[in-house]
Every structure is written in structure tokens, then in C-alpha cells.
Amino acid sequence: MSFEFRALPAAFLAPRSASFADFLASTAPASLPQRTSAGDQPLHAAHGTTIVALRGDFGAVMAGDRRATMGNVIAQRDIEKVFAADDHSMIGIAGTAGIAVELVRLFQVELEHYEKIEGVPLSLDGKANRLASLLRGNLGLAMQGLSVVPLFAGYDIDRGRGRIYSYDVTGGRYEEHDFYAVGSGAFFARGSLKKLYRADASVDLAVTTALEALYDAADDDSATAGPDMARRIFPIVGVATTDGVRLLDESEVESRVAPLIAARMTRPNGPFAGMPEGGSSS
């Protein structure tokens, strides 16, 4: 579609909702990622793996490993699966990488578009609901095996705390209490988070907890990568606080990963969760 030196088409001037995705669906439906059919043959496409998120009074932390797999092959070592969705929220993606990355791009434009048209950003719940409806559009492809499972987290300015939302392929949206993980290594990450999560954690501790959980996921799930010290490829970590979303830079993550790996040299299974002497039930 070319726009150069042409008057704005009538559709651009027509009154409509503030949703970019709805606008795209009516004016350029072929641009939407979900309006394609994969046929009935099983497809080999790159898959992104584990994303973890946890919340606290400070806001929320999200971290994702860097591996994409295609069957038993590592498709990419340094894929990015955690993104800032807007100023105060983050999105992480697991599942078919190509569709997931496109979904993130659409979601980012959707949030920015609303903010520009309406003059105010959507509420965190509003953002979470928009993501659910975008995801619902992918149900057809999900049925063919090309599913995308996002994890959404952010700082809720109205409530003054971090919040986490998980999704299923049908667009079901569920708010999680303290922590959550998605992707192939999610079970191991969740087990780890269950033992290590502390509601009163500082941002620093929450970041370390997320990195420990990813390490545990990589430990038991072949599709999740641990920190790659040789190539200096580390998980992507995002933090959402009242000041906004910040993705930690590589050296910052490295400085947190190094002591974690050093500690695992003596305790390969990770930190001791601190059960009292004689058991917890006494």
C-alpha cells in the first residue's frame, strides 16, 4: 500500500474507534498477522521458550531466555522475547516466534495509537484486554499448531502496584497473584519461583529471583537456554516501576548472572529455600 502524494482515503477521516487493530482490519486486513492460513500441513517454525514474571510493591519484573528452537535444532541463540509494550508495561512471548513477534509489534502500535488518539494511555486492565482480543484473532493458526502464548506485566498507576496477566491460546485472560511463567520450561520455572518468591522483595532481589527461575528452567528443559557465558548472551530482563519500564542492559544482567553461576558451582540446584529445622509443619 502506497501513501505518497495522495489525499487521505475516506477511511482515514471517518469517525472510528481508537483501536489500531480494528482500523487495520477494515482498511488493510492483509497487514494483520493472523489473517493468513497455514494450510493443513504441520509447519516447522521457530519456537520461543521460557518467560517468567513476578510482582511486588515496587512493580513487576519480567525475564526471558534467548533460545528459539525448531524441533531438536536451536534456531536462534539470541532471540529477544521480552519487550516494553509501552511506558509502563511489558510483554513476553512464548510459542511460534514469527507470529509472536508480529503480535508484539501490533500490540505496541495498538497501545501507542490509543494513547495518541485519546490523549491518555489505556488502563493496565484495558491493555491486558486488548491483548486478549488480538490473541483471539490467532485462534485459527493456534489450532494448526502455530500458537502464541504471551505473558503481560506492568505497573498499574491507578492501583500503585505491579500486576501480571497470563493468557491461553483462545484469548482467555487470567490475572496472576504473585508470579507466573510461560513456555516449555514454565513448569520448572514456576517450581523454582514458588520456593524463591518473596512478596516483600526489592527490585534487585526480584530480578535475581527471575534469573534463578530461568536458570532452573534451562537446567531441566532442553528448549530453554541458560546464560551463555562464552558468547555473552544473557536473558533479557525488564523492570516496570512507577518511573516506567526499563530493560536492563547487557552488562547489568551479566553482573547479576556472574555471582549466580558462581554460587551454582557449589550448589548446582540453586539456593536453599530456607525450611526451618525439624520441618515446616511442626
Binding site: 500500500m1 501513501f3 487521505l8 482515514f12 477521516l13 489500531f20 482500523f23 487495520l24 482498511t27 488493510a28 497487514s31 509489534r105 501490533l106 502500535v109 501507542e112 495509537h113 495518541k116 488518539i117
Partner: peptide, 15 residues
């Protein structure tokens, strides 16, 4: 015109 401009710009940037 403003709304149309935002739509045009977002559409272009997305495409």
C-alpha cells in the same frame, strides 16, 4: 485531520 494523520503514520510505521 489529526486523527487521520496518526492513523496514516501508525499504518506506515507498522507496514
Amino acid at each position: 485531520l489529526r486523527v487521520a494523520g496518526v492513523r496514516l503514520a501508525d499504518m506506515r510505521g507498522y507496514s
